[in-house]
Each structure stands twice: as structure tokens, then as C-alpha cells.
């Protein structure tokens, strides 16, 4: 599977870029929407959590601390959610290609993952510039930021691969994914602080598949290194889902093109 992805790397990259540029084709602001959407979301969350519900952040104060906290959670989360939800539908959407050309299926899921990763990378660039402006100290740990992001996207790719294959047979899955993503997001401290949760629940959260990566992003931004547990979980989860996806794809790959 990895080899076929490597073989089609140009196709994946080109389609991802094309998709990125033309997702909002026809709208007057075009590709700018890729950034405007997350910005609008961040503005809303900031308003809700900083003025209506008071956020409790440990050790960090200042007007911009919460915005930085929020962004460093929402950007990776959005990338992951995009990767899963768009990846899930990608085989059905690209049925035309699959019927006519012998292109391996993972290519279409990978293309969504790459597009999501590029969007996240651009948003992070903007966020770090913003951070510098409001006095976030520059740190060498920023160089490690791509690592948790890549881990998150391999997880997104593995889940996307699993769901897109199943979605070919049961189209309802695509609808369920939206709901499942909402649940996943609100059960983890992404837009709120972990501190407001009961301690017992915080212990369970150690096993949350997304949290190690998102925590690591936040730590690295503040110039700290993540703990060993975070590093381990960050790579363990993509492995687990990767093996699962591989097993399902192997079992069903012959039938995908029969029903699509």
C-alpha cells in the first residue's frame, strides 16, 4: 500500500493542491476561504469561552493566551476532522476514476490527507507569526511541530482508509462520521481547558487517540517537550488503526470496484 502511494505521489500532490486551490472555486474570495473558515471559528470560540464562560488555563495568563491555546487545538483538530470526513467519502466521490483507471484506492484518501496537512501547515505559520506579535517567546521546539501533526494525519489517513472502504458498501457511514467527529471533539479538551474536567475523567483521557498529538502541539508551541507517554501514544494509535485499516482493505479491496 505504501509503495503504491509512493508511485502515485505526483498525482496525490497535484490533486491535493488543486483541491486546495479550487475547493472554493467560484466564490469571490477563492482560496482565502481556507484560512477564513478557521479564523471565523476561532473568533466565535474566543468570544464564547473568554467572555461568556471564563476559561481556566493553568499557568498562562494574558489576553492572547487563550486564543493561542484555542488555535493550537482547533488547527490540528480541523485537519484531522477534514481528513476523516473527506477521506471517508473520497472513494465514492472518485468512483469515475476507480471505474476506468487502475489506480489504487488509497491514493484518493491520501490526497485528502495531504490537502488537510497543507491547510494546517499554512494556518500554523500564521499562528506562529501571530504568536510572535503578541509576545510568545520563539523556541527551537517549534521545529518539532510537524511531528505531532504528521502523527495526527497518519491517524486520520488510517481512519479515513477504513471508513472510506466501508462507506463504499454502506453509504450511511458518511452521515455517521459527522456525528462521531462532534462527539470526539467535545469529549476532549480541544476548545476548553482540561482543568475543568473531573480528575477521574482526566485519567481516562490519557487513552484518547487525538489528545497526545494535540497536547504535544501545545507543549511544543510553549517551548516544552512532550512526555514519553505522549510520544508513545502519538505513534501507537496510528499503528493500531493502520493495522485495522489494512486488514479491512485487504479483505474488501476486490469487491470495492464491483459495487462502486
Amino acid at each position: 500500500m505504501l509503495f503504491s502511494l509512493y508511485q502515485h505521489r505526483n498525482f496525490i500532490w497535484r490533486n491535493a493542491m488543486h483541491d486546495f486551490r479550487h475547493r472554493y472555486a467560484g466564490s469571490s474570495m477563492g482560496a482565502l476561504w481556507n484560512v477564513l473558515h478557521p479564523l471565523a471559528m476561532i473568533a466565535i470560540y474566543t468570544l464564547v469561552f473568554s467572555s461568556i464562560m471564563t476559561p481556566q488555563l493553568d499557568g498562562r495568563t494574558g489576553r492572547f493566551a487563550f486564543i493561542l491555546y484555542l488555535c493550537s487545538g482547533i488547527i490540528p483538530w480541523t485537519a484531522f476532522a477534514d481528513c476523516v470526513s473527506r477521506g471517508c467519502g473520497s472513494l465514492v466521490v472518485n468512483a469515475g476514476y476507480l471505474r476506468k483507471l487502475p489506480i489504487p484506492e488509497p491514493v484518493f484518501v491520501a490526497q485528502e490527507a495531504v490537502a488537510a496537512f497543507v491547510t494546517a501547515a499554512i494556518s500554523f505559520g500564521l499562528l506562529l507569526v501571530f504568536g510572535l506579535c503578541v509576545g510568545l517567546p520563539i523556541s527551537w521546539t517549534w521545529l518539532l511541530l510537524p511531528v505531532p501533526l504528521l502523527a495526527l494525519l497518519s491517524l486520520g489517513f488510517a481512519i479515513g482508509m477504513l471508513l472510506s472502504t466501508l462507506n463504499v458498501f454502506f453509504r450511511d457511514i458518511q452521515q455517521w462520521v459527522g456525528i462521531a467527529l462532534q462527539i470526539t471533539m467535545w469529549t476532549a479538551p480541544i476548545v476548553y481547558a482540561a482543568k475543568i474536567l473531573p480528575p477521574a475523567y482526566q485519567a481516562v483521557l490519557r487513552w484518547h487517540p487525538l489528545l497526545p498529538s494535540i497536547n504535544s502541539v501545545r507543549l511544543l508551541m510553549d517551548g516544552n517537550l512532550p512526555a514519553a507517554w505522549d510520544w508513545a501514544m502519538m505513534f501507537a494509535w496510528p499503528m493500531v488503526f493502520g493495522v485495522l485499516a489494512l486488514a479491512v482493505v485487504r479483505a474488501l479491496s476486490d469487491e470495492i470496484r464491483d459495487v462502486i
Partner: peptide, 18 residues
Amino acid sequence: GFNPNLSGRVNVLHTAEL
């Protein structure tokens, strides 16, 4: 399996590579 948004020329190059 041509891409409807690309020109004939670009489609030829892409599909050939594919």
C-alpha cells in the same frame, strides 16, 4: 477519468503519468 477542470493538454500529461 479525465479531470473536468483541467485543459485537454494538461489532462493528457496527467493521465499519461497516472
